[in-house]
Nucleic acid binder design. Sequence first.
DNA 1: CTGAAAGCGCTTACAG
DNA 2: CTGAAAGCGCTTACAG
Lengths: 368, 368
Amino acid sequence: MAKGKTKVETPPAPESGRAVTIHDVARYAGVASMTVSRVVNGNSYVSDAMRERVQAAIKALNYSPNLAARNTRAGNTGPRVGVLYSNPSASYLSEVMLGGIEQSSRLGTQLVLERSTGLASQKAAVRRLLDQGVDGVILPPPLCDSRPTINMLHAAGVKVLALATARPMHDVSSVRIDDYQGAAAMTRHLIELGHSRIGFVKGDPQHTPTQLRYEGFVDAMTAAGLPVDPDWVVQGQFTYRSGLAAAELLLSPDERPTAIFASNDDMAAAALAVAHGLQIAVPEALTVVGFDDTPIASTVWPELTTIHQPISAMGRAAVSLIVDEIKAERAGNAPGPTHQLMKFTLVKRGSSGPAPAKAPSRRRAAKA
Amino acid sequence: MAKGKTKVETPPAPESGRAVTIHDVARYAGVASMTVSRVVNGNSYVSDAMRERVQAAIKALNYSPNLAARNTRAGNTGPRVGVLYSNPSASYLSEVMLGGIEQSSRLGTQLVLERSTGLASQKAAVRRLLDQGVDGVILPPPLCDSRPTINMLHAAGVKVLALATARPMHDVSSVRIDDYQGAAAMTRHLIELGHSRIGFVKGDPQHTPTQLRYEGFVDAMTAAGLPVDPDWVVQGQFTYRSGLAAAELLLSPDERPTAIFASNDDMAAAALAVAHGLQIAVPEALTVVGFDDTPIASTVWPELTTIHQPISAMGRAAVSLIVDEIKAERAGNAPGPTHQLMKFTLVKRGSSGPAPAKAPSRRRAAKA
DNA sequence: CTGAAAGCGCTTACAG
DNA sequence: CTGAAAGCGCTTACAG
C-alpha cells in the first residue's frame, strides 16, 4: 500500500463525482500511467511486482477503462462493420445483434445495419454499406450463403464474415456451430430415450444447414442400427406453417412415429400445436424436439428440447473476428479467412420423454 | 492528396485509408474546426453563409463524426446507464436492448446489464449496478412496476425509467404506449369486422397493462352497445401455456365466440394452436388477435393481427430520456420525471377476418 | 522492464 | 458570429 513520495494513503476520493481514470490508478500505485495501461491490456512486459501493485490499485479504486477514449488514439477510428440482413423480424436476428452490438461497443467499433429485402435490392444495400465506409460486413443467414453478395463485397475490398453458415467457404471467414454433430447428438438422445420410430422434418433446401442436419440424423440412426423410413422424412421450409403441414403428414396415419425431430424450433413448435390438436400428449405419447433454441422454444408448452446455438455469443464472436481481420489487414498482414466453431448444447426440456411402452395406434384412443 | 497551402482544390483523398475528420472538413471549407463542430452539433450561433459552406464540405467529404472521440472531452464520461431485467430469454427484451444499445452507442453512453432472478436477488443486482457506477437505470417489465426496486435505486440517488409500464408513476420517468387505447382500437376493429361475440383472455394480474387492456376492451364493447359475457372473459398469465388453457375454455363449449382477443401475442399464438387442433379454421370460422407484436406474432400461421408496440424505438427513447435527465441533473437543473407516450399501430394480418355469417356450432361439423 | 512526450478527434471555455 | 488554445482518457512510438 505504501507508495509514492507522500505518506498519505487515502485513495483519491472515489465518490468525488468523476470517474476513476488511468492516472488515478497510476498515482495511487506510484507508477506511470503507461504502466497501468500495459497491465490493463496485459500485452507488454511488466515485472510481476509492478503488475501486482497496479492490480491492487485497480481493485482498490474500482477502475474500469474508458472505452471511448481507448479507441481515440492512433487514427484508430475503430473499424466500421456492417451487418446485412434480410429477415428483420426474426428473433434470431435480435439475438445476433444483441451480442454483436455489445461486442462492438466494447471494441469501440461502429456497427452499421442495412436490410436487403429481395435479391434485387441487394446491390443497393451493398452500395449503401460501402458508402458508409464499412471495412467489413457480417452476413447472418440466409445471406451468409449468397455467393453474389459475397462477391460484390469482395470486389469492393471489404472483409466478409458468414454467420451460422453450415458450409464454411475457403475465402470467407465464418462463425458457426457444427450442424451435423448437433443433429447427430439430438438423434442419439432420442434413441437413448428408447425411440426408434422417429420422424424428421427437413428445412428449407436453400439453406446450408438443412442438408447437414438431415445427414446428422440419418448417420446417427444408421450407427444405431435403426432404419430411416422415407415416409417419416418430410420436407419443410423452416417456417411454422411448413411445420404444421409436415406434422399433419407425420401424425395423421394410423402408424405414426413416437418422436418428431424438426430441424428448427419454429417447425417443432408447429408440430407441438398439431399434436395438441390431435389430443396426443407430449411427451407421454409423443416426443417433439427442435433445433436452434430461439425464444419460441421456451415460449411454447411444453417447452422444447432443442439444440442450443449460442446465438448472441456468435454475434460477439463475429464482430471480434472481423475486427481482428480488419486490423490485421491494416497492419499489413493478410491472414486467410478464419473459421470459428462454437459449441452447441443439447438442452432437455419438457417436450421430450421416454418412448411409450407400445407403439401407439390411432389417436382416437386417447380422446377423453 | 495535394492540400493545405497549394492552390489545388481537390478534396483530401477520401480513399486515403483514414477516416475523414473534422479538420479535413474545416480545411476543405476554409474555416476553423470549431465552426465545423458548431454546425455539426447545430447549437451555437453560426452565420448562414458559414453554415452552408460547412455543410457542403461535410457532404462533399462524406464526413461523419467520430463518436468515440466526441465523448472523450470534458470528463464527459458519458453517463452510465444500467438495465435491470428479470426475464432473459424473452424476445421482447432482445428488441428493447436492440434499440437501447443502438441509442447508447450513438450517444456514447455505456450500457450495463444486470439480471435479477427472484425478488431475493434484486437487492444484489441493484448493488452490482451501483458498484458499476451507473447514473440511471432502465426497468423493463415487469420490474418497471416494482416499488421496492425503484425505492432502492432512488435511495442511491440514481435516476429510474420505467419502460412499458401501463401506469406511469409521479416520481419515475416512463416510456410507454397507451394500453387502454390500444385494446380499445383492437376491439373496435373486431366490431367493424362484424364480430359481436368476442372472447377475451386477460393477462397476469400482477402486471399493470393487464387491467388497462381489459378496460379498453370492455369500454369499446360497451360503447358499441355490445354486452361482455363474463363466461367469455378468461384469466390468463401472459404465458403460452395459460393461453392454451384459456382457449380451450373458450372454444370447447357448444356456443363459442367468433373472435378471441388475447391480451398478448404468446396467448394468442396458443389460441391459434387450440383452434387448429379443434379444426376451427382461422380466420374463416374464428378470428384470433393478440397484442404487442413480438416475433411470435409473425412466426405462427396464420400470422397474428395484433397491436404493434414500437419496442426497439421504446428502447431507444428510454436511453435518450434517461441520459437527458442525467445530464440535466449534472448541469444543476432538476426537472421532474418525464413521460413519453409512443404510438401503437394496429397491424392486420391473416388471423382476423369478417365474422362468419351465422353463429358456428359444435366443431365436429367442420371435421373432414 | 519503465516512463516522459506527443497525439487521437472532438469539444469546452476563453478571447476577440 | 468566429477562432486559437487547452484538455478529455488513453495509447503509440521513442528513449532510457
